[in-house]
């Protein structure tokens, strides 16, 4: 889980072009939106693309988004639960 969260942080910084944020600055449980990291709705769409490109995961139910995207840890848990073993 720690390794996955570290990878996710680096991928989020790159995919979302967060040039003034370092991956290590993002807390495992830090809220990603609003007062947390300050991401917006377009960023949420980019994270959906990230999950599809890097992990082959599609989010079937968009209403789950706020719960899944709450923090890096919740995204990592979602990936762990849904990634098909290779």
């Amino acid at each position: 889980m720690e390794k996955l969260m570290a990878a996710l942080k680096a991928q989020i910084v790159e995919q979302l072009n967060l040039q003034e944020v370092k991956p290590e600055d993002i807390g495992d449980d830090q809220p990603l939106f609003k007062d947390g990291l300050g991401l917006d709705s377009i960023d949420a769409l980019e994270i959906i693309v990230l999950l599809q490109q890097h992990y082959g995961i599609r989010i079937a139910n968009p209403e789950q988004g706020p719960e899944i995207f709450r923090s890096v840890r919740t995204i990592a848990e979602f990936i762990t639960a849904h990634q098909t073993p290779k």
Binding site: L16, N17, I42, D43, L45, E46, V49, Q52, Q53
Partner: peptide
């Protein structure tokens, strides 16, 4: 051609 970029689309 791959996955459309929301960040570019806007």
């Amino acid at each position: 051609k791959d996955i459309a970029s929301p960040a570019l689309f806007v």
